[in-house]
Simulated assay, not measured.
Amino acid sequence: MTLTSPKPVQPASNLPRIPVALSSSSVYPLSVHDTFAVAHDLGYDGVEVMVTGSQISRNPETLKDLIERYRMPVLAIHAPTLLLTQQVWGKAWTKIELSAAMAAEVGASVVVAHPPFRWQTGYAGNFAEGVRHIAEQYGVTIAVENMYPWRVRGREAKAYLPHWNPLPEPYEHVTWDFSHAAIAGMDSYEEIRRLGTRLSHVHLTDGTPNGKDEHLLPGEGTQRCAEALQYLSETGYTGTVAIEVSTRKAKEPGEREEMLRQTLEFARVNLNQVVDE
């Protein structure tokens, strides 16, 4: 499929324009610096920084320098609450608080956090109340991300407390990830409708119900990505849509950038932000 470069415009209605951000995970194994450069070159509205072992991802002063250099705001901070980032920023609550503090310092309005793992019993016991308190303290939104069931030898293993699905939990704000929904056998379009105003952040990607967190380009999996974005554009969604796709298989020069350009265009078209030339 050949796509032309997107031309962003205000939606036809008087609803606010939904910003589209590039997650630093989408350029992996390239750097956070590369995320800013690619987002600037392709015309994204901002970036989402995933906090990892990378020093740049944990340094607000460096991030502010990149914001100024590329005229590219940080719209979200992803807290280091993944299994792969267990050693980053120490204890569970420290991860959340430092992420919120950095978000406030660099001007990001949202912190993305995963639900607690089952072995984090003390942290999990007052998680909803704790994130609410930290969010109020730093003046940011902490949006808990939907995850998916883990399976061992074909049987579900309880990995998260109280659950991988944030919908029935008392979280004020939720991040919705299409790839995670695919693994869980959920329909993102329907779940986003159920979330209503609790939906504060979106990870745009795709996936299939094969048990792998694929983070495909939207349209390559089974999720109703286009319909979900169209619904957001029509209902006054005030959060950010962050592109979180895997480009690790890119090998040819410019291949990664083309994947991210196509995904940006997919978002712009379905958010009603593109006009015909």
Rank of each mutant, 00 (worst) to 15 (best):
A135W: 14
N146R: 05
F127H: 12
I77K: 11
S109R: 15
V152T: 13
E156S: 11
V131M: 11
E97Y: 01
G130W: 09
V112G: 06
E105P: 14
R132F: 04
Y160G: 06
T94H: 13
N146E: 07
A182C: 03
T121N: 14
P170Q: 07
E136M: 07
L84R: 14
A79F: 08
E136R: 15
Y70V: 04
A181P: 08
W93L: 01
A159E: 02
A159Y: 14
V174F: 02
K91W: 10
G122R: 09
N126E: 14
G154D: 05
Y148I: 06
M102L: 06
H180R: 05
N165I: 05
Y160S: 05
E190P: 01
V74P: 04
T121M: 15
G90R: 00
A124T: 00
H78Q: 11
F178Y: 10
P162A: 03
E136T: 00
G130H: 10
R132Y: 09
Q86S: 08
A182Y: 03
P168Q: 01
S188A: 13
T85R: 04
P115H: 03
A159P: 00
L83I: 02
T94C: 05
W164V: 07
D187R: 15
E190Y: 13
V88I: 12
T85A: 03
N165S: 14
E156W: 05
P73C: 12
V152N: 12
I142K: 05
Q137I: 02
V131K: 01
R71D: 14
F117V: 03
E169I: 07
A92F: 12
V110W: 02
L83P: 02
M147H: 03
Y70N: 06
G185M: 08
Q86T: 11
S179I: 00
